[in-house]
Design a protein around this nucleic acid. Structure first.
Lengths: 198, 198
DNA sequence: GACCGATGTATCGAACCGATACATCGGTAA
DNA sequence: TTACCGATGTATCGGTTCGATACATCGGTC
């Protein structure tokens, strides 16, 4: 999937960044939905994005840099910035709805960037996700009711726990959907690109 | 990791099975903790296990089979059964504790086979998992308290939801641990290999 | 001045997934 | 009768992701 590409483009909207920092931002932004992203995923993704022209290297602004010239093979920090094409692509991905956007991973990432998504898209994604989780919930109920006597206590307990998680997520989604519908949520927050750079 | 190998060996303890059936069993057994396992994972895993001598083909018992000889290139169903080595290996994996056993995926699979795990191991895994989830929880609390003003409402909501999930899982683990300690749980259920075959 | 943990870039092998292709079977609608 | 369809079933391919690892620099601290 392109969930990591998507996330990287989204984070780079906040300004140029190098790999290490990018990973930290990704970790806090997505920390609630997945484990820390590994470099074995991040660096290939960056190369992919760069090859596609969606990001570019932004040669380390040597403003107040240590004026030490690379004596040894100085492996300088590589700073990436998003390109115009990248912004456009991110916009398209933001507006997209479909199976990947209500899959576990896809939903999480899209939700993390809801502040930049318009309300109609948010609603479509939330509802798609709800349907998805409801299906999962029904599947678990099936197993629990029809096969209860054939499964051991621990497997059963696992199913119960999973079922509970599904039910809670559905309730959560329901609340979010109600909020969206009643207009409690902002339309689209302004791009915060230049924020923090006075 | 070897979580899929582990699960396959565990399922095959219930009797010989072919790929399709195996997938269905895996799906109901692990349905609460991960999406349906894909054939692109299952078949390579089966080949790997077979190469290692942990499972073997159990040439389709032609008991009351349709006596139709393979006219065309009949791609018969391939039935796998666990070998003695496989059972031994599964036993070792059951008793193991360590980082992979309290990681998300690893924990789920090990828990699903807790009925065959001895109480001491169960306790060590549950406690390791609890520590792990507590760390995750603290990380989320950090983010929520220290960076609340720098994150948009949706990202914040995601963190809150994640935090709540962590807190609930900790409570759940706490209950399970208490149960184990008070001896409410069975030691090890007898192998149910021959069950259902009168 | 020796050490150490945080910062930082990068790659490798293995695992895993989604999509896809292909084939058989039972049922059912034309 | 035939034609189709959905469930059953085996299998692979390309691409993504992960965990482990290697290597290098920097700011402290003992």
């Amino acid at each position: 999937m392109a969930t990591l590409e998507f996330a990287v483009l989204g984070i780079l909207h906040e300004g140029p960044m190098h790999g290490y920092e990018l990973r930290k931002q990704l970790t806090t932004k997505l920390g609630a939905i997945r484990a820390a992203i590994s470099y074995g995923s991040l660096y290939p993704t960056l190369r992919r994005l760069q090859a596609a022209g969606l990001i570019a290297e932004a040669g380390e602004t040597p403003a107040t840099d240590t004026a030490v010239p690379p004596l040894t093979s100085r492996r300088g920090r590589v700073v990436y910035k998003i390109t115009a094409d990248g912004k456009e692509r991110f916009g398209e991905m933001l507006a997209r709805t479909g199976p990947e956007t209500w899959e576990d991973a896809g939903f999480g990432v899209h939700f993390a960037f809801f502040a930049r998504t318009d309300r109609a898209t948010r609603l479509r994604i939330l509802e798609g996700r709800r349907r998805k989780v409801e299906e999962r919930r029904e599947g678990l109920r099936e197993v629990l009711s029809r096969a209860a006597e054939r499964l051991d206590a621990y497997t059963l307990e696992l199913q119960r726990h999973g079922l509970e998680a599904c039910e809670r997520e559905v309730r959560w989604l329901e609340e979010l959907i109600a909020n969206e519908r009643s207009g409690q949520t902002p339309e689209v927050t302004p791009p915060q690109e230049s924020l923090g750079r006075p």
